[in-house]
Design a binder for these strands. Structure first.
Lengths: 231, 231
DNA sequence: CGAATGATTGACCCCCTTCAAAAGCGGTGG
DNA sequence: CCACCGCTTTTGAAGGGGGTCAATCATTCG
């Protein structure tokens, strides 16, 4: 059967002759490696709500905040994307969320149309996308539980532990808060004042220690932090 | 709430010769049609957190609440799954959430291992799973924004509109609340008392009308309800 | 009917928000 | 070097939205 899509035709021809640039079963990472690298300054947007969804991005360096704003300006951060994370996946032609760099970052850009068309004939790739979205779904659900059910202190504890799991290994007890208090507040459904006060409270309880002008948090009592986060 | 996509043409194998039980490219719907139908009584569980993830389910009838419980009993409902929605997808071998019937329901059961192994060699199927999870991710994000940023009245309005979009067509202004107040509360991160009071408030504002002993809601002023939900 | 379950309503209180001010913390330039 | 400025964070005081506790009402079902 002849391939009908442009990309498939290309891959098919390439496989038959020369070494293909994009083989029928290249991995997601192979494809991403081919994307161009883009540098994003702090507070610059990777994409905005309403933009045509032309690309999918993989964070290489830095932190990207993915968020939704309401008409009156209220903002809910859905996720902080760290190196390795994919952002911009979806089924719609336009972005429903915005993505903004928390600090100077680098992202690899990959054509969404190409990627998703390729996935239509490459089960391996499609499965990878499926798994990536499943991971993201799990993270979003976790945040939903935190925001829907937990107190301010519990939310902060949960947030710090998530950062710790994602950044430092089990031994590294210091996590770097690249984001501002307002970002943490908008992630956890709190105000900056409450975030600040709650951090102070955790500090006074001897659970954490704040360094470097409030940008680094050292976990002093990991067990109590976990207890707080789960309760 | 993984909505499946429209049934596509049957695989060429099936059209060309006999119908195989599971052709290399059967659609998700074909596969689901082969699953056994299981009746679930109200309050009965489809699966529980910690159970081995042996099956994926598609709701055929009724409503299934997918939720997570904290150690102290607090509960966050992640989603109400309605007919057509898929539940139980994921990458882990065990369930991380629980699923419980809100009212007497019917679900179609499909072996998770079989489905996911089939997806590894069937791009078409894998893409369908990918899209289904994307849909669910979008819905979960929407709920997260609601719970993280909106007031009680706004949450209720958002909830009612979501139900309306899902159940009644644009013309049907009456939505059936199959679930109890406690379910709505646990979905929206409120208490049953607040849900009750807020419904009363919307009623006194002339936006909704409650019928059938509190189980049905008639939307009297759709525009004001939308205004509330988006604000 | 009477018991059980769920929904509503009331009174009180607390956690978090809001409003306001002060204090850090870099940068820039005189 | 330090004064100044903008930005962010911290801290304080006051108020409110929703939680908690408790009583009443409604509905269903044995």
């Amino acid at each position: 059967m002849l391939a009908t899509h442009p990309l498939e035709a290309r891959s098919y021809l390439q496989t038959a002759r020369e070494a293909p640039k994009i083989a029928p079963t290249t991995s997601l990472d192979d494809r991403l490696a081919q994307g161009t690298l883009r540098r994003i300054e702090a507070k610059e947007h990777v994409y905005c709500e309403g933009d045509p969804r032309t690309h999918v991005f993989q964070v290489e360096q830095g932190v990207i905040a993915v968020y939704k704003t309401l008409v009156d300006g209220r903002r809910q951060i859905i996720d902080f994307a760290y190196p390795g994370d994919l952002i911009g996946l979806g089924v719609l032609r336009e972005h429903v969320l915005s993505a903004q760099a928390v600090c100077t970052s680098k992202v690899r850009c990959l054509s969404a149309a190409t990627l998703e068309r390729a996935a239509e004939s490459d089960a391996n790739l499609a499965i990878k996308l499926y798994r990536a979205v499943c991971q993201e779904l799990a993270a979003t659900r976790h945040l939903l539980v935190t925001v829907g059910q937990r107190s301010a202190a519990e939310r902060l504890a949960s947030f710090l532990l998530t950062l710790h799991r994602r950044l430092g290994g089990p031994s590294n007890m210091t996590v770097d808060l690249a984001m501002r208090r307002s970002d943490i507040a908008d992630l956890l459904g709190l105000t900056i004042e409450t975030v600040s006060r709650t951090i102070a409270k955790l500090r006074s309880m001897g659970i954490i220690e704040v360094e470097h002008g409030g940008t680094k948090v050292h976990i002093r009592d990991f067990d109590r932090l976990e207890e707080l986060a789960s309760g």
